[in-house]
Design a protein around this nucleic acid. Structure first.
Lengths: 282, 282
DNA sequence: AATGCAGTTCCAGCATGTGGAACTAAAATT
DNA sequence: AATTTTAGTTCCACATGCTGGAACTGCATT
């Protein structure tokens, strides 16, 4: 994505009078609260009762109720009267799916993803880097019974997913530092690269070979191969991955799949008017 | 999405001392306004400047700005500093994507099916495509004595049922081929389209008119009219049908029923956050 | 320099949202 | 059947938090 730096570079050059107002900087209380409610609901696809949500966001039920009905009016949340549970509504879905560029990218990428799925016979995912976390945008599932995880909207950590490591391999020094130091290299499985040096070595390897391999580092029995789609400045835009069970993702197949993902990712890059980055300097 | 013109549901600028709306039960102004803002942004995937959004929702820029920054805080919207445009943010996408997981098509469709049953007076069915076979998911029966077949869980062949043909009309070439060659066009009645060319011609007709007609092709004395519900990619998700005995399903009624099924199917599509496919090219 | 414009911040004033409490409905317990 | 408990909904006095005009900034145009 273009905004690697979360700070607004040019909009606020005028900080002459120091704004030492750290917290009350124009936040609309009721709105924030409503958003928390939605976040809470999103955590529970099966829905939550009024009191449950209210409790989760630490609001009196009366307030929560008022906010929920307002959200309901605009169909951002819905109420299942049979189970008397509050759920995310259509409108939220509609809004969310226009999540810009991504939408265009997803639309463009989908045919390629489908082709990759057919070639490999495995589930294909497209994901982006959001504040140093992996967010899955789209998925093309394979027909086989045993399939891989997380659908669109899901999140994963950078250091222990194929796409994540691929993205990380092209991240800046400071971003990598953030992941290692602030987020911490949590250990998901025994194979997770929880050691900074091991991770760095793997990233170097990824840059060299052009694709990342996740070998049960995120979940036992799951392997994944990932490569990147780049924007017009040669910056990583998204990661493309093929994932499947150990049984099918054999050692012998990995290079083949690696080449395939890299190939398709490059095609998507091309179609998007992107630019493959210069040869790795390291 | 629908409105190009920025209409606000109802506006009440600050200096309205008149409490002329008794039915304002618990609407949180700032929240509603924020949601309108999001709706406006969702209409423009390429983004809008502050003044543009503000104008669309008829709010002073200062207010719009305050709301937007609050939304930005929770990452429901984001600001592209290069183009200085406001866009839908990741969080909106994430939230929205849980809608897909939580939606229960059958539960959502049922009220619509009931309405369709009442309008038409005939039995209404909802069915999906499972490995190129029709599987009935739900049924709303009419009160009349003589009613149509198969309840939920039942199966039918693609080529000789209303829903099946509707689904087939939007299937891929290879899937159609599978049905014709591998499954074979069994003849259920004299009217069954057991000939590949006849079937293909009928499918073309279905795409053109928007709904399928099963005229005793599955069982003698039974007619059926079917249309489709689509998912967010414009892919067929399920088929909706109205079926009844020849005696009541007269030639004259078919177009009326056809329009009704299509209409209701479209409404279900909407409620599910689906997208009607582009105009048929064929 | 002067003017215009889009975006941002400030702040007084009061409309608006808040949340405790009262109320209702349903379920659990006696 | 009467009672208690729990969950959801409505009410409303109060002061908080929101509003929006105005002032300001930085940038573009004349």
């Amino acid at each position: 994505m273009s905004e690697v730096v979360p700070i607004r570079p040019r909009t606020k050059p005028n900080l002459a009078p120091v704004r030492e107002n750290p917290r009350t900087s124009g936040q609309v209380q009721s709105l924030s609260r409503a958003l928390w409610l939605m976040n809470a609901l999103a955590d529970c696809p099966q829905g939550l009762s009024l009191s449950e949500v209210a409790h989760r966001v630490q609001l009196p039920t009366s307030t929560a109720h008022r906010l929920l009905t307002t959200l309901q009016n605009e169909r951002y949340v819905r109420f299942d009267s049979e189970r008397s549970a509050w759920l995310i509504g259509v409108q939220a879905f509609q809004i969310g799916s226009t999540f810009v560029r991504s939408r265009d990218m997803v639309a463009m990428a989908r045919p390629y993803m489908r082709r990759l799925m057919e070639e490999s016979g495995e589930t294909v995912n497209l994901a982006i880097n959001d504040r140093m976390e992996v967010v899955y945008l789209a998925q093309v599932e394979c027909h086989k019974m045993m399939r891989a995880i997380a659908g669109p909207g899901g999140r994963a950590r950078m250091h222990c997913s194929g796409v994540g490591k691929a993205l990380l391999a092209y991240a800046s020094e400071s971003e990598l530092h953030d992941v290692i130091e602030n987020q911490g290299l949590t250990r998901e499985t025994q194979k997770t690269l929880a050691d900074a040096d091991a991770l760095k070595a793997d990233l170097k390897m990824i840059r060299k070979r052009g694709y990342a391999i996740d070998d049960e580092e995120n979940a036992i029995g799951l392997r994944c191969v990932a490569s990147l789609v780049f924007d017009e400045h040669g910056e990583p835009l998204a990661g493309l991955s093929v994932s499947g069970p150990m049984a099918r993702m054999t050692d012998a197949r990995l290079p083949v799949l690696g080449a395939a993902v890299t190939q398709i990712a490059a095609e998507i890059t091309g179609e998007l008017g992107g630019l493959l980055p210069a040869e790795p300097t390291t």
